[in-house]
Amino acid sequence: MSRRVLLIEDEPNIIEAIRFLLTRDGWDVNTHSDGTNAVEVVQEAKPDLVILDMMLPGRSGMDILRDLREIVELAGLPVLMLTARGQSRDRDMAEKAGVSRFMTKPFSNTEVLTAVRDLVAQASRS
């Protein structure tokens, strides 16, 4: 069983931290940091889970999420969304758009790790 995570994030230090965490937990981590072609990258990579930052250069994470949910073969793909804008409206919008988990930065490492494990487990069960 493949354990692949696609991390879409533009902040180098955060990329490094998450990659470190997940790699240590046995995940295969691919990263991408441009919003413009993020959807195509997901389609191509077909990861088990996408970690998606809300504010990306080129295109917002919210738009990318909406597009992903339109794509039939990606149905059931868990998307963990991260945001640094502490607005509750964003959470509502993201949930409406079909986000699997919504997390506000700064997050705790354990939290991210648990969420990734749970979401992938849920997805593989269903």
Binding site: E11, N13, R85, G86, K105, S108
Partner: peptide, 21 residues
């Protein structure tokens, strides 16, 4: 405010993540 929040939270995220590591 949301811009400020973003600008504050981003370095804090790195700080928290790496200090936890």
């Amino acid at each position: 405010l949301s811009q400020v929040s973003h600008e504050l939270r981003t370095p804090m995220t790195s700080i928290r993540a790496f200090s936890e590591i």
